[in-house]
Nucleic acid binder design. Structure first.
Length: 102
DNA sequence: ACGACGGCCCTCG
DNA sequence: ACGAGGGCCGTCG
């Protein structure tokens, strides 16, 4: 069903996000045709087992805050910073600059 | 099948 | 700027 493809679609989309760029949960929800399912996107990512192959740390909140992560936000921030994303007080600086537009 | 629980988002005040 | 509240939806037990 649609929900079967749902997580697959989400993960597939994540793989397209370049290093050093970010996307929002809602953005992805819209991109895969489920504009109201932003929260469900998080549920799908929560189960992502291929953390290396699928960079789910590049998904953040719509207001530029980091949001949660399977391995903890701390880890998520480190990863983003290691890709050149500037973060200050738990929020991404120059958010729209790093935002990967679809 | 059902209900709770999230890696959310938007709208007020 | 900031918190509270309501809405939404896939996943798991």
């Amino acid at each position: 069903m649609a929900s079967k493809n749902f997580s697959q679609r989400v993960l597939a989309f994540c793989q397209r996000i370049p290093r050093g760029r970010v996307c929002t949960y809602g953005q992805i929800a819209r991109a895969i045709g489920r504009p109201q399912a932003a929260r469900a996107v998080g549920s799908a990512l929560r189960k992502n087992k291929y953390l290396i192959k699928i960079p789910c740390h590049r998904i953040v909140l719509s207001d530029g805050r980091i949001g949660n992560y399977q391995k903890g936000r701390r880890r998520k921030m480190k990863l983003l910073e290691s890709e050149g994303v500037k973060i200050e007080r738990g929020r991404i600086i120059e958010f729209d600059k790093y935002l990967f537009k679809v």
